[in-house]
Each structure stands twice: as C-alpha cells, then as structure tokens.
C-alpha cells in the first residue's frame, strides 16, 4: 500500500491544495479507503495539516476510513427509490446481513452504503452489489440476492 501511495503522489509533484480532493479520490480508488497513514502522507506531500485533510474527507460522502467489505452494497435512496420502498430495502439488508449503513461487518464480508440517487429512477428501487445492479427490486428478489451473497 505504501508503494502505491508514494507512486501516486509522485504524479502530483508540485501540486497545491486544489489537488487534494483528486489525490484522495485516487488513493481511495487504489486502496479502497483512506487510512491514517495515507492522510499523513498526503499532508506531508501537500504541506497541509492532517486535521484539514480529515476535516475535508469527513465532509464528503465519497470518502471512507475503513476498507469496503468483500461485497459492497449500495442502496439508492433517491426520491423515486424512496417512493418505491427503499427504506424497507435498507431495513431488510441491515437486518439480514447484520450490517449498518456506512459500516463494514466485522468479518469484512459486507459493507453497506446509502447513496443519494444513482440516476436510475426508472428502475426504482435499485441496489448495486460490487457495481452490479439489481433493479426494480422486490422483497422476494432482494431475499434471493441476499441468500446468494450469504451462501458464498
């Protein structure tokens, strides 16, 4: 991981503060989350206090501070999905997989993220598991998806 971040920071030599968000985004893409180490490294590189980086990262939805689960489940909670029962879906996933929104299960298998509108209002409600979409979700369909995930 160390090497990845160093390599990445090399790309951003002579960068200023406005590169902070792109750098953090790339780190998260490569490593999956922002570790303390990464934040300190970026701080040293850009000469920004770590408190400011942490403050910034906690502001935005995108950044996370623990690794994603093996299965990263995103549930859309846009208006259309809300009207078609997204709350119920979140509820079921939280209960069946014993995971809370924004967290990863202790065994690292599942992580759940509530996202505001993924733009597929025609297919509401929608979830995505590791980038694979399940749309027009019914409770039965969701149940099957979860059984499949749990079974593996």
């Amino acid at each position: 991981m160390d090497g990845t971040i160093n390599l990445l920071l090399e790309k951003y030599s002579h960068s200023r503060r406005d590169s902070l968000i792109p750098i953090l985004q790339e780190i998260q893409e490569e490593v999956g989350y922002l570790s303390e180490e990464a934040i300190v490294k970026v701080g040293n590189h850009l000469n920004i206090p770590t408190s400011k980086i942490y403050g910034l990262a906690t502001f935005y939805n995108q950044f996370r501070f623990e690794p994603k689960g093996k299965y990263h489940i995103q549930v859309c909670h846009g208006t259309a999905c809300h009207l078609f029962g997204a709350i119920r879906i979140i509820d079921i996933i939280e209960r069946k997989l014993k995971v809370k929104a924004g967290q990863t299960t202790r065994n690292g298998k599942f992580s759940l993220e509530i996202v505001p509108c993924i733009g597929a209002c025609a297919q509401a409600p929608v979830i995505s598991v590791n980038g694979e979409y399940h749309s027009n979700l019914t409770e039965d369909h969701l149940g099957q998806v979860l059984i499949d995930l749990n079974g593996e």
Partner: peptide
C-alpha cells in the same frame, strides 16, 4: 497550528 477543524457535516 491547525490542530482543530470541523469534522463531518
């Protein structure tokens, strides 16, 4: 010194 910042939202 910049010890403090706003966290979360």
């Amino acid at each position: 010194v910049s010890t403090l910042d706003f966290l979360n939202r």
